[in-house]
Design a protein around this nucleic acid. Structure first.
Lengths: 350, 350
DNA sequence: CTGTTAGCGCTTTCAT
DNA sequence: ATGAAAGCGCTAACAG
């Protein structure tokens, strides 16, 4: 192999043919300056004469120099990377947030590093550890099941932004959904339509958000003077199938109802299918409302009335906040409000 | 700060309170052996006496040592990382593949590094460059719009696995879908049901997969002796809205048809909505078939007949293949076959 | 079996 | 303004 670094030019990009990496030393030699001068012009850290500057840049171009991030990271003790813990790479709502995070990071010089937690505390902690091991400069955690205690410890060490997760002492660095309010709005909408027997398919009740949504449902009922009927409350697990199961259960029990509020859109889809199978019309026979406003919900039949949360913006805000935090700023996150989107799956009770 | 590295014990995990990292030197000192011995036991590279081994492990435990990946990467010239280029972090079908990739990588010591290309050659190339800059040991590219030439160059430098993308000289390291066959099956199914005026909503025809699906459709028609009617072929762009637009267009033109084959499920959803708005029943009035078998398609009303591709397994295979390639093995990828899933959106033509 | 030492590629004093 | 040199934390020869 020798020290040869063969190059070839193609499509405007110079590609190193050998696996040898081109180093700063190479470009220093090529441009006839010292290693440190190269570093200076590359980082714009100090004054360098015009000529040398030009020479260096020319060499960089010519050799298609690319910095070695490991060496950089090692030398400066920072990675220009932010760790992002999501729960499941194909969970639609979280994905929409990730989109926002990516957009917020784009062009900032920081790259995202993903890991997933699968809503299991153990996996989540391992994933966070993995991100930490990779020297991320900051961490964004979406939802999840880790203990507050664990998160507080992380926050003590690293810039941390939480999304959709309330940890008492960390709320100022958290992007929060207003789950209670959203659920309240959804239920209120149904009540205003004249429904009184309103089913609620909850999420996994160990999750804060599921709990808050249930509370919002309960409160709306109470405020309207409608007695709470435990037979109308079924626990789901946030995926489609649990929605169909819940509705099946209702029928098997001979339970009467005229409306359903599912704690997320996916379960609403499941409920809708179960209804369809029984030949029950939506919204003529039963009204249905979901939560999250997934892209898909605008295309179901009928289009689903649901609660909208600005997932993309939340992701962007999370990204901006983590960058601020890394830069030493004080976090300041305005709360996001949930909004009722009325489409065609709800109608006046007959 | 001094050299103090304060520690605290909590929840079974020892956390370094100062930002000081614990290094191998620290644990060497702590356990009274040399730096290299520590390296040996950590990497299991050579024989080390039981006692020293134990002492080192104890120190590692006690100080909660975590290796610095940058230093490791720099020293060994490998990152234990595989770059994964997807197109859009929230594209449902690709996400299912990513799931498989993650699963395939889990527990192998390799971590995934994601980037997105948004189906735009320029962004894609930049993202790939970014991954390369991060010294990934291998690269998995899902779909995309980069030139074959560019990919061939990458393949010459790094282990590369392509998913759903055919580049002539790289097929042995590609996970391929049988788009032609799948589309053929879908169309054939409709034909067997007695349909003759079968609409096809294509994907973006610059994409190989969209083109192949169109060809499959055409071939099935031809084989059945059904004349091709260009008015029945509409170009979509793989997202829901283009499905509704296509159907609207058909109606505006007064075009007759009894079945629709959409090049992916998302466009089928759009088509279904457009039909719904016009009060046209599925499958009684028109039959509908999609492509991809997204999770959601089992929950639409009616559940969607579609073409299934084993996305998860494809992701796993991609992961295994890249690991093999990194390890110097010859790639050997069995082709995946597309399968027709008959649900309830298709019925015999009346 | 184990310690010493020379880098890996880059940033950053410290001189000049 | 610019060069020399000392690390950053780890691996991998190289000597015992």
């Amino acid at each position: 192999m020798g020290g040869m670094k063969a190059l070839s030019y193609s499509k405007g990009v110079i590609v190193s043919q050998s696996s040898q990496q081109i180093t700063m030393q190479d470009i220093a030699t090529q441009s006839g300056v010292s290693l440190s001068t190269v570093s200076r012009v590359l980082n714009g850290s100090e004054n360098v004469s015009q000529e040398k500057q030009a020479a260096v840049m020319a060499a960089v171009e010519a050799l298609n120099y690319r910095p070695n991030v490991f060496a950089q990271g090692l030398a400066r003790g920072a990675s220009r990377t932010v760790g992002v813990l999501t729960q499941h790479i194909s969970a639609p709502f979280f994905d929409a947030i990730l989109d926002g995070v990516l957009a917020g990071l784009r062009g900032t010089g920081y790259s995202p590093l993903f890991a997933d937690g699968l809503w299991r505390a153990d996996r989540e902690e391992r994933s966070i550890q993995l991100l930490l091991d990779r020297q991320v400069d900051g961490l964004i955690v979406l939802g999840g099941a880790t203990s507050n205690c664990f998160l507080r410890e992380i926050a003590a060490q690293k810039p941390l932004v939480l999304v959709g997760r309330v940890v008492p002492e960390l709320t100022h660095q958290s992007v929060l959904f207003d789950d209670f309010k959203g659920a309240y709005l959804a239920t209120q909408h149904l009540i205003e339509l004249g429904h009184r027997q309103i089913v609620h398919i909850t999420g996994i009740l160990e999750h804060e958000d599921a709990l808050l949504r249930k509370k919002g449902y309960l409160q709306a009922l109470e405020d309207a003077g409608i007695p709470i009927n435990d037979n109308l409350i079924l626990e789901g697990n946030f995926v489609e199938q649990s929605g169909v199961l819940a509705v099946e259960m209702l029928f098997n029990r001979g339970q009467l109802f005229s409306a359903i509020f599912a704690a997320n859109d996916q379960m609403a889809y499941g409920a809708r299918l179960a209804l369809y199978r029984r030949g029950i019309r939506v919204p003529e026979d039963v009204s249905l409302v979901g939560y999250d406003d997934l892209v898909h919900s605008a295309y179901t039949t009928p289009p689903l009335t649901t609660i909208h949360q600005p997932a993309f913006q939340m992701g962007e805000v999370a990204a901006n906040t983590i960058l601020g935090l890394i830069g030493g700023e004080q976090p300041e996150i305005a709360p996001f409000k949930a909004e009722l989107i009325v489409r065609n799956s709800t109608a006046r009770h007959r």
